[in-house]
């Protein structure tokens, strides 16, 4: 009876040892994935920042008005040319 107890205890120890090793291994794999994702996040973050900057540069008031005036020959409408529509 005592022998059986010992053997099952021994088996449990083996199982738990195996479990510990597996979990640790999976933990490492997960960490590697996490690092990969963090890298990706940082890359996307960089890309996002760059695009934000690009958008902001293109859309600065100064660039827009220069472009409108010089390239598209636009002028601000004078008062006489403005028609107001009453939505009632």
């Amino acid at each position: 009876m005592q022998g059986l107890g010992l053997i099952s205890l021994f088996l449990l120890v083996l199982v738990s040892a195996y479990g510990a090793v597996t979990i640790r291994h999976e933990n490492r794999l997960a960490l590697v994935r996490l690092q990969g994702l963090e890298e990706e996040r940082s890359h996307l973050q960089y890309e996002w920042g760059r695009l934000m900057l690009e958008k902001a540069t293109w859309s600065t008031q100064h660039n827009l008005s220069e472009d409108a005036k010089k390239r598209l020959n636009m002028v601000p409408p004078s008062y006489d040319h403005i028609v107001t529509v009453d939505r009632g």
Binding site: Q45, G49, R50, M52, L53, A56
Partner: peptide, 19 residues
């Protein structure tokens, strides 16, 4: 930590950090 961006009232970016 990443420093937050500042946007104007029309969500135009006033300042942003890039890595």
């Amino acid at each position: 930590p990443e420093r937050g961006a500042i946007f104007d009232r029309n969500n135009q970016v006033l300042t942003v950090s890039t890595p």
